Computed example of a mutant assay.
Amino acid sequence: MTDLILSLAADYGVPLLFVITFLSCLALPVPSSLLMLAGGGFAAAGDLTLAAVVAAAISGALIGDNLGFLIARRMGLRLDDWLLRRPRRAALRAQSEAYMDKWGSSSIFFSRWLVAPFGPYVNYVSGLSGVNWPRFALWGMAGEIVWVGLYVGLGYGFADNIAAISSLLGNLSGFLAALVAAAGLGLWMRHAIRVRAAARRHA
């Protein structure tokens, strides 16, 4: 799979990177991180222009983020029903909402790059919950600049070890997302226990 992706990146380069980062921000399962690493690697080799790689990745991600936000704002309950229809989507939606409740605006920033699996779902939750759009767009742009800079920069600096870097970053991102989900579940359970204890005291 990695060889195929690298081959596609070599053949289609910047336009492919734009499309893939756009789709990834709409929660479609595409290898955006690996393609950004590959784009950085091809830029280091002189096959692509670094500025074009960065511009394509950032613009694709920003358009995807804001489109996901606006879809959620417009579709409301219909999108929420779609998210809840599959257990995995429902779990990510619930974890993203807990993440938003705990961290506020900074959750938009950190879900772009630190816990990237939550990113598209934070977009949807932000739109569903009525987050102010300029605030969402500003924090999202800041996070996407970090995300793209990190992956393209690592691809540029470690062009000979893209597969290993991709695996390492994927495992780290998954671990951090699981850690955040566990923390959110722990907070929810603590709140539920307190509510139940208060109800018993007043019974």
Rank of each mutant, 00 (worst) to 15 (best):
residue 90 A to F: 06
residue 24 S to H: 04
residue 197 A to N: 14
residue 58 I to A: 11
residue 8 L to A: 13
residue 146 V to M: 10
residue 177 A to S: 11
residue 44 A to E: 07
residue 86 R to E: 09
residue 71 I to D: 03
residue 160 D to S: 10
residue 92 L to P: 03
residue 85 R to C: 12
residue 198 A to G: 12
residue 57 A to E: 01
residue 134 P to D: 13
residue 111 S to K: 06
residue 8 L to D: 05
residue 64 G to R: 02
residue 121 Y to I: 03
residue 76 G to K: 11
residue 12 Y to T: 01
residue 101 D to C: 11
residue 177 A to N: 03
residue 84 L to A: 13
residue 43 A to T: 10
residue 167 S to G: 15
residue 153 G to L: 11
residue 57 A to T: 05
residue 92 L to Y: 04
residue 51 A to I: 05
residue 31 P to C: 06
residue 57 A to V: 05
residue 134 P to A: 14
residue 172 L to F: 11
residue 10 A to D: 08
residue 181 A to I: 02
residue 181 A to N: 02
residue 20 I to C: 02
residue 45 A to C: 13
residue 81 D to E: 14
residue 66 N to R: 09
residue 174 G to I: 14
residue 137 A to N: 11
residue 63 I to M: 12
residue 150 L to C: 10
residue 95 Q to C: 09
residue 32 S to V: 01
residue 45 A to Y: 09
residue 172 L to M: 12
residue 120 P to R: 00
residue 139 W to G: 01
residue 170 G to W: 03
residue 188 W to L: 08
residue 124 Y to D: 00
residue 33 S to Q: 04
residue 149 G to W: 09
residue 98 A to W: 00
residue 98 A to S: 12
residue 76 G to N: 09
residue 114 L to P: 09
residue 106 S to P: 08
residue 2 T to Q: 06
residue 56 A to Q: 01
residue 132 N to G: 11
residue 42 F to C: 05
residue 101 D to V: 06
residue 43 A to G: 13
residue 114 L to N: 11
residue 61 A to D: 01
residue 192 A to R: 13
residue 42 F to R: 04
residue 128 L to W: 05
residue 142 A to P: 08
residue 144 E to Y: 08
residue 82 W to D: 14
residue 87 P to C: 07
residue 117 P to K: 10
residue 87 P to V: 04
residue 79 L to Y: 02
residue 68 G to I: 04
residue 79 L to D: 00
residue 37 L to P: 00
residue 160 D to N: 07
residue 72 A to N: 01
residue 51 A to V: 07
residue 42 F to G: 03
residue 37 L to I: 05
residue 123 N to E: 07
residue 73 R to F: 02
residue 11 D to Q: 14
residue 142 A to G: 14
residue 182 A to N: 15
residue 167 S to I: 15
residue 159 A to I: 08
residue 75 M to L: 15
residue 203 A to L: 12
residue 56 A to M: 03
residue 85 R to E: 11
residue 150 L to P: 00
residue 169 L to R: 04
residue 108 I to M: 06
residue 189 M to I: 15
residue 144 E to L: 10
residue 99 Y to K: 14
residue 172 L to H: 07
residue 31 P to N: 06
residue 129 S to G: 13
residue 135 R to A: 08
residue 97 E to F: 05
residue 17 L to Q: 01
residue 71 I to F: 14
residue 190 R to C: 08
residue 180 V to A: 08
residue 189 M to K: 15
residue 126 S to I: 01
residue 158 F to R: 12
residue 187 L to Q: 15
residue 75 M to W: 10
residue 99 Y to P: 09
residue 129 S to R: 14
residue 16 L to G: 05
residue 72 A to L: 06
residue 144 E to S: 11
residue 23 L to T: 05
residue 95 Q to D: 12
residue 201 R to E: 12
residue 113 W to C: 03
residue 49 T to R: 06
residue 134 P to F: 13
residue 187 L to Y: 15
residue 192 A to C: 12
residue 83 L to Y: 08
residue 95 Q to E: 09
residue 117 P to R: 08
residue 152 V to W: 01
residue 4 L to D: 03
residue 22 F to N: 00
residue 203 A to N: 12
residue 116 A to K: 10
residue 158 F to L: 15
